[in-house]
Design a binder for these strands. Structure first.
Lengths: 210, 210, 210, 210
DNA sequence: TATGAATGAGTCTTCATTCAT
DNA sequence: GATGAATGAAGACTCATTCAT
């Protein structure tokens, strides 16, 4: 008890959660477009076509919207990677497909990727003191890559480096491409698909034993 | 003599430029620590030991401070890369040294790197409509890498891909590592130097013809 | 006993009046605990186990709940004083018993006493302009004391002062003790019952002719 | 550190504190008239003729205004009682003068008295858990009465009751009169000065040995 | 040059209340 | 009779910025 009368429970489910989804959709777009800090609850409400207070029937805080979006983004990426068809015995092609899936996700859903991996909020120093670094979905996403690398490593299909390092290096390679393409659309990139294919080819080539 | 005890020490005025530097230094630290949006002009002023309005004698806007920092960060990185000793005829080792320098810069000056490459502000969609994408320093930094790759390409020391693509791929690889290490210090990374060395080795190995 | 688990159990509806009572009971407790201003209709509704709008089926306004509670508190006190057994010909002991009953009421039902006599609301200047000062129950409560004093005065059992003044002075003495004990539970009071007994003894001694 | 950048210091002293005084004066009147909870910072600002944010240059919180007023009220009362001329060897008349001073203070400065002794804020249950009951000034005010009673007790000038109890009983008697007169101006009181004189006479008579 | 003082616009959030169902 | 959903108005508070001095 904090010394105030107990709060009444929030989070009603309007029409089976449709409103909630509308809010999340609008917020995702706005956060992605302007950055979380630059978007006000008024703007979100207006984008959904509801009043500001109505927002608070579905989320008890602006941050809560951000968190939900954050979690969902991770969950989507994890799902995408997890649901990939894969050979019974993992092959190098399976890994390549996963790398491609990661990049595709980021570029198809840049707002979600931004919220998941590129937002200031969840990443500033002070917060490390109180919050765990990444939500479950995050480790899960990375986990898929990691497990694949381990599996290939066990088949001696990777270069001669410990799989943990390889996996982290791969992740860095993927994240670098996605985040730059998202954040710097105006940069004079070479043809995008060519860049992606080449980059993924180089990453795979660097990590996999030929 | 103002005689006021318990007042931030009024630093010697010196020539106007010094004050400006102090402001930038304080702002860089604060922006890096709390995020640009979470830092107020009041905090900056307080950190420097001046009044809020005095800030406006040096910068006409809070954003202007951010932009200056942004530009400087790029300039620093560019300088670092430009001033690297290099063989008369560019070698693969020269490129490797540049890659290392890039990463070192990012990790030694995470605040600057953040402001240059990872900040929400100044990189969001709407702004692309009105502003050019990257300041001069940016293209310059990338330019160094690019020129190196071109030079090596001309010596047939790179793999068989157009040098533009190779350079951009390299940049992505570098940025991915630096930005993740900065943004996710809590992640269970393998030993940092080992990760860096391995990652750079893989990147170089992927791009350079052996 | 609202059975706090998760959701308050929807009590059997019964006849409309019961609901109303439940609301009043819950509101009295909450108002007493947190202060009228700090309690929202949502909290009251939640405490009763009904929805916020349902409140408005029983009371057309939050203030109306407060007023009803206010009136009831007075009525209770009046009833307590009125129902006191008393000698056919009023004695000094009858008055003493009434004084004790007043204090007992206040300390046994501090929430009710608060609402009746100590609440900011309904007692502030502006409201005196439009509203009569005290509800019927109020004058009635005081009336009992007043009548007693008058009766004793007629028997020449009081000190030599007009009975109106004596009665009002007595009331002040009672209210002062009750309100301080309620409002300042943390004050280093002497043993409570001793304080009460002594105080009432002094009041009676001051007013009654020996 | 709460995870936000340090706050810059507030509480500037406008024109040697004049503004601050204006704010306190306006707030005292408004709080007294409508109750603390019913007064908004906007209203206070408007009453002073300044903007809402300007308020925050002098007080960092609405509550802080209330606390300052609270403390001042106690300090005033304490000063009033302390500065009373008194015989070298305390007499019964000295006590009577103090009783009168207490009542006079309350009736001359009803807003201050309200804030000191009658406000909901500082007196609700939950707060007892975290806050000490009364500020220093409070015990000090009561302390003057208490010391007087003790002094008279030592001269055997009081009735036969322990002085702590006598002092608390006296306080209750005083507070009851003042608070009722303040809170119930519409009640059909007998002539005010007569009531006061009689009440104080009765209190003194009850407590002092004749 | 520097600042004390001030502010309009805006932040998130909570409230009592209403209405269609 | 009851409610899920919604809202206008208001709450305290913070911001970047200006201006007279």
């Amino acid at each position: 008890m904090t010394g105030k009368a107990a709060r009444s429970p929030r989070k009603a489910k309007g029409h089976g959660g449709e409103r909630r989804e509308e809010i999340l959709t609008a917020a995702l777009r706005l956060f992605g477009e302007f950055g979380i800090h630059a978007v006000s609850t008024r703007q979100i409400a207006a984008a959904v076509g509801i009043s500001q207070p109505t927002l608070y029937a579905y989320f008890s805080t602006k941050d809560e919207i951000g968190e939900e979006l954050h979690n969902r983004a991770f969950a989507q990426l994890a799902a995408r990677l997890t649901q990939l068809p894969r050979s019974r015995i993992l092959t190098q092609e399976d890994l390549s497909a996963a790398l491609k899936a990661y990049v595709d996700f980021g570029l198809e859903q840049p707002d979600a990727y931004r919220i998941a991996f590129m937002l200031e909020t969840a990443t500033h120093r002070t917060q490390f003191l109180t919050k765990p670094d990444l939500p479950a979905g995050s480790r899960e996403s990375f986990g898929v890559l990691h497990q694949m690398v381990v599996a290939l490593h066990e088949q001696a299909l990777t270069v001669d480096l410990d799989p943990d390092t390889l996996a982290q290096s791969l992740w860095a390679g993927l994240h670098g491409l996605v985040s730059l393409l998202i954040a710097r659309p105006g940069f004079p990139w070479v043809e995008r698909q060519h860049l992606i294919d080449s980059h993924l080819g180089l990453l795979a080539g660097a990590v996999l034993r030929r």
